[in-house]
Simulated scan of single mutants.
Amino acid sequence: MSLDNVVEDIRDEARARAEDIREQGERRAEEIVETAETDAEELLEARKEEVERQIEQEREQALSSAKLEAKQERLEARRDVLEDVRSQVEDELVALSGEKRETLTRALLEDAVAEFEGEESVSVYGRADDADLLEDLVADYDGFEYAGEYDCLGGVVVEGTGSRVRVNNTFDSVLEDVWEDNLKDVSEKLFDQ
C-alpha cells in the first residue's frame, strides 16, 4: 500500500466521518426545530387559552357590574317613588281641613290626655295654622292651654309642666309609625313584587 492509498483512505474516512457528523448535526437541528415548533405551538395554545379565560372573566365581571348597577338604579327609582308617595301623603295631611282635621286632632289630644292625669298645668303645641282649633280643643280640659306652635303637619305635642313627660301625637309621628309598619305592603302594591 502506498502512501497515496493511505492518504486516500484517511480522506475517505474523514469524509465519511464528516458526512456522519453533518447528518447528525442536521438530525439534531431538525429535532431542535421540531421541539421549538412544538414548544411554540404549545405556548401559543396556552396563551390563547389564557387570553380566552381572561376575556371570559372580564366579560363576567362587566356583566356582574352591569347587573349590580341596574339593580342599584332600580332600587333608587323605587326609593324615589316611595319618597314621592310619602310626600303626597304629607301634602294631603297638611291640606286636611274642617271637621276631618278637627276629629283627627281631637283624637290625638284625647289620647295624650291620659298621660297627664293629676297635672295642674299642661302645655299643648301644634301647627301654627291649627292655633284656633287647638285653643278650642284645649278649652275642654282643665289645666290645658295652647302654648304655641310646633313644626309639624298637624296633631299635638303635649307637655306637663310639673313632670318631664312629653307626648308627641303629631300627624308626622303617626305617619312615621304607619309608614314603617306598612312600607313592605306599600312597596309590594306599587311594584307588583
Rank of each mutant, 00 (worst) to 15 (best):
L3Q: 06
L3N: 14
E8R: 14
I10A: 08
R11M: 06
R11T: 10
A14L: 11
A14I: 14
A14Q: 14
R17W: 07
E19A: 09
D20H: 13
V33G: 06
E42L: 05
E45N: 03
E49M: 08
E49I: 04
V51R: 12
V51L: 13
R53G: 11
E56R: 14
Q61M: 08
Q61T: 14
K67D: 14
L68H: 09
E69T: 11
K71S: 13
K71T: 11
Q72K: 13
L75I: 04
A77R: 15
R79C: 02
R79T: 02
D84P: 01
G98V: 05
G98F: 05
E99R: 01
T105Q: 11
R106P: 03
L109I: 10
D111F: 08
A114T: 12
E115N: 03
F116R: 01
F116I: 01
E119Q: 06
E120H: 08
S123F: 00
G126I: 00
R127G: 07
A128D: 15
D132P: 01
D132K: 01
L134R: 14
F144K: 08
E145L: 10
V156T: 09
V158W: 03
G160P: 00
G162N: 10
G162Q: 04
G162I: 02
S163L: 07
R166M: 14
V167H: 05
D172G: 03
D172I: 02
S173F: 03
D177R: 12
E180K: 11
K184P: 12
V186I: 11
S187V: 00
S187T: 13
